[in-house]
Amino acid sequence: MQADTALLSGVLFAVSMWLLLQRSFVKVLFGFVLLSNAANLFVLMMSGEPVGRSAPIVGDPGPVVDPLPQALVLTAIVIGFGVTAYLVTLLYRLFLDSGTTHVDELYADEPAEREKSK
């Protein structure tokens, strides 16, 4: 169980890294979404092997899984939700402004722009 989860989060990390290094911002955005999921899965693993243990709080007898990593993941999911929504909106704005989200086309006029008093 732990090995499967480790493998899955490893694959997610690898795929998200590959996406983050792409030259299109849409892919970077997807990379970020996958990365936060990979991280959530990774931190969830820290509560240990869940087999034979029940959910905390509800009052089932017997050993319970460690609830702290779950609380951390919940917080991170909320934050990730907000940041993702922000990035989507920003990317949409970028697309409306420039008509593209590809790095090469977005920054093509960079050197000329830099000369302007910014």
Binding site: R93, L96, D97, S98, G99, D109, E113, K116, S117, K118
Partner: peptide, 14 residues
């Protein structure tokens, strides 16, 4: 307003 397609890059005055 942000809406609408991209216009020509505008001059940024200082």
């Amino acid at each position: 307003p942000i809406e609408g397609p991209a216009s020509t890059p505008k001059e940024k005055g200082g």
